[in-house]
Design a binder for these strands. Structure first.
Lengths: 350, 350
DNA sequence: CTGAAAGCGCTTACAG
DNA sequence: CTGAAAGCGCTTACAG
C-alpha cells in the first residue's frame, strides 16, 4: 500500500491516546454528548483536528445495527421528470443526515431485482422506488417482510399495500378534459402511453369519468396505447385522425407524448392550438419552451420526491412499517397548445 | 422492535449452526471458494436459502478495510446532460459490482463540501465529481491525500493533477467555426456561458484559434459571458446584434444557450438557419427535436460517464492514485439551425 | 465525568 | 477441506 492509503486511517483509539482519554470518551465527544467535561472535549477535538481523523460510519452502523444509508431506485434517470424526482428525494435525505444510494434501472425489472438485493446487503434503512415497467408484484416483498420501510414513487404496485407518493392523475386528466369542453370541443381523444401502465390507467380513468359527467359517450373516445415517446405520440395522433369521426382535441398521456402529437400535427400542416388542441401531463421543464408552449397538467415532482423521502424518514424513525399514500395536487397550466374557443375552421373540418 | 425488523437479521453463525459447520466455512462458501467440499457447500447454501440470509456488506467492508461503495457528485442532476453522465457512471459501477452513492450539489460548493465529507466518512473506495461552479481548488485535496481515487468529470480543477474526463471542447468549437466559415460566414460570435467556467474557456479557445487560422481578426468576435440558460442565450444574442457590425452566425456555449439564441431570433422575426446561423454544443436529446432542429457539437456523454467510472475502477484496483485524462471525441451534427451557404439576404443585412 | 469490556457481522491468517 | 481465534472501528451498558 502506498503511503496515505485508506489503510492508514486514524481511528478513535489513536485520538484517545493523543488526548489522554479512553475511546469511550472520544465516542461521546463525537456524538456531542453533554456529559463530557468541556476541557476534555476540547482536548479530544484538538486531537481529531491534528490527526485528521475521519469518522467511520460503516463501523458505527455495524455496531448500532442500523444505518444512515437509504436507497432510491429510479426507472429512468434520463427522463427529466424522474431526474427532478430524484433531486427532490436526494435533497430531503441529505438534509436529514442520510446518504442516498441511487440506482437507475432503465425500466429493466431484472436490473431492478439486482439492485434491490444489493441495497439490502448494503443495509439501507429505507428505500424509495419508482418501479420499472413490468415489475413483478412481489418484487419488494423481501424488504417489506424484514421491516425495511419502502415507499413507491409514481407507480403503484398491485396487490400490495406499499405506500405510494404520486400526483393526482385522475383529477389532472379531468381538469384537462374540462378545459377542452369549455373551449367547445366534443370529440376529445386520450393519446399515448404504455398499455400496462398504472399511471396511464389512472389518467384514463379520470379522462373517461370527466367525459361521462359531461354527458358524452366515452365509447367514442379514442385511446390506443403506444410507447410513451415522441414517436408514440405521433403514431397515436395518426391513428386518431384516421378514424371516421376524428377528434378535435387530445389529452395526452404525458408531455413527451404531447410533443410527438404536436410534431405530427405540424407535419400535416395543422398548427397545434389552432387546428387541433393538445394538452400534456407533468409540465416538464421543456413544456413552456416548446413551440407552441404546451398546455399541460402541472405536477410538483420535486415536491413529490421530498414528500416520499419524508415519508420513509418518518417510517424509519417511528419504526412503523406503513404510511399514508400521498396524492399530490395538480393544476392546469394554460399555454398555447390548447388554443382558444373552438374555431370555425375546426367546425368545418368536422 | 416489531417482528421481522432488521434486528432479526440472520448472520453467518446461524447459517453455520444450521449447516453444522463453522462460520469460516460459511464465509468461504459465500465468496465461492474452491476449497470447500461440494456436499458441504450445498448444505451451507441450503441453510442460506432456508433461513433467508442476507449478506452484510458493511461488516465485510469493515473487516477487509476496503469498501465496494463509490461516490458520484453531480453539479446539476436536472440538467439532462448531467443526468446522462450520471447514468453512464452508474451503469459502469453497477456492472463492476460497486454501489454508487449519488449527490446532487445544485452548483453549491458548500453543499459539495458537505457531501465530500459524508462520502469520506462512508468510506467510498473512489469518487467521481463534476465540480460545482466556484469549487475551491483544494476541495478534493483531503481525499486525494489519503489515497482515495478521484476523477473529475467535465470540469477541470486548476492547479491540481486530478484526472479529468471530458469532451474535446477546443476541437468541438473549431469544428463549429469551420462549418460556418464554409457556409460563407465571416462575422461569427461566441455566445453565452459563465465567465468563470473552465469549459467555456476551452471552447472559447478553440473558437478563437479557428478564427485566427482562417486569417480572421479574433478581436472582432463578440463573446460576452452570461448565465448558461435560455435567458442568457437570448440576452447574449441581443448584445451581439446591438453591435455596430453584427454577426451573421454564432457558436453557442452549449445547446441550452443556443435554444435561447433561437428564441430571441424568432422574437425579432429572424428564422434561425435562414436569417442567422446558430450552432450549439453537447447535442442534448432535445437538440434534434427543437424547432428548427439544432446543429450542434455532439458529445457522447454517457460514454464519458462510463469512461470516468472505468478510470476510477482501474485506480481502485491497481492502487495507483493517478490516471490519464480522457478527452472524448466530438463531431458536428448538422441539422437546420445553421442553414445552408450564406444567403443574399444576409449579405444585404451586413 | 471517565474507563474497561463486550460485541456488531464479517474475513483472515493459522492450525490441523 | 474445516475450525478456533483474533480483529476491523465503532457504541453501549455498566462500573466507578
Amino acid at each position: 500500500m502506498t503511503a496515505g492509503s485508506p489503510k492508514d486511517r486514524v481511528t478513535i483509539v489513536e485520538i484517545a491516546a493523543a488526548a489522554g482519554v479512553s475511546k469511550s470518551t472520544v465516542s461521546l465527544v463525537l456524538k456531542g454528548s453533554e456529559s463530557v467535561r468541556p476541557t476534555t472535549r476540547d482536548r479530544v477535538n484538538a486531537a481529531i483536528r491534528d490527526l485528521g481523523y475521519v469518522y467511520n460510519r460503516g463501523a458505527a452502523n455495524l455496531r448500532r445495527a442500523h444505518s444512515n444509508m437509504v436507497g432510491m431506485i429510479i426507472h429512468d434517470l434520463i427522463n427529466p421528470f424522474c431526474a427532478e424526482l430524484a433531486v427532490g428525494i436526494e435533497r430531503s435525505f441529505q438534509a436529514a443526515g442520510y446518504v442516498p444510494f441511487i440506482a437507475n434501472t432503465a425500466e429493466s425489472p431484472v436490473r431492478q431485482a439486482e439492485v434491490i438485493k444489493l441495497m439490502r446487503e448494503q443495509g439501507v434503512a429505507g428505500l424509495i422506488v419508482s418501479a420499472a415497467r413490468g415489475t413483478p408484484d412481489d418484487a419488494l416483498d423481501g424488504l417489506v417482510a424484514v421491516g425495511v420501510p419502502v415507499v413507491l414513487a409514481m407507480r403503484r404496485l398491485k396487490g400490495r399495500r406499499i405506500p405510494v407518493v404520486g400526483p393526482d392523475n385522475r383529477r389532472g386528466a379531468r381538469l384537462a378534459v374540462e378545459r377542452l369542453l369549455e373551449l367547445g370541443h366534443r370529440r376529445i381523444a386520450f393519446l399515448g402511453g404504455y398499455a400496462d401502465s398504472v399511471v396511464r390507467a389512472e389518467r384514463l380513468e379520470g379522462f373517461l369519468a370527466a367525459l361521462v359527467d359531461a354527458g358524452l359517450d366515452p365509447a367514442g373516445a379514442i385511446h390506443a396505447p403506444t410507447t410513451a415517446t415522441r414517436e408514440g405520440g405521433a403514431q397515436a395522433l395518426e391513428m386518431a385522425l384516421a378514424q371516421r369521426n376524428p377528434p378535435t382535441a387530445a389529452v395526452c398521456f404525458n408531455d413527451i407524448v404531447a410533443f410527438g402529437v404536436c410534431l405530427a400535427l405540424r407535419r400535416r400542416g395543422i398548427q397545434p392550438g389552432r387546428g387541433f388542441a393538445v394538452i400534456g401531463f407533468d409540465d416538464v421543464q421543456d413544456a413552456m419552451h416548446a413551440d407552441p408552449p404546451l398546455t399541460t397538467i402541472a405536477v410538483d415532482v420535486m415536491g413529490l420526491g421530498e414528500r416520499a423521502a419524508q415519508s420513509v424518514l418518518r417510517m424509519i424513525e417511528t419504526g412503523r412499517n406503513s404510511a399514508e399514500d400521498h396524492i399530490g395536487a395538480v393544476h392546469l397550466a394554460v399555454r398555447e397548445s390548447c388554443g382558444g374557443p373552438i374555431s370555425e375552421r375546426l367546425e368545418k373540418r368536422a
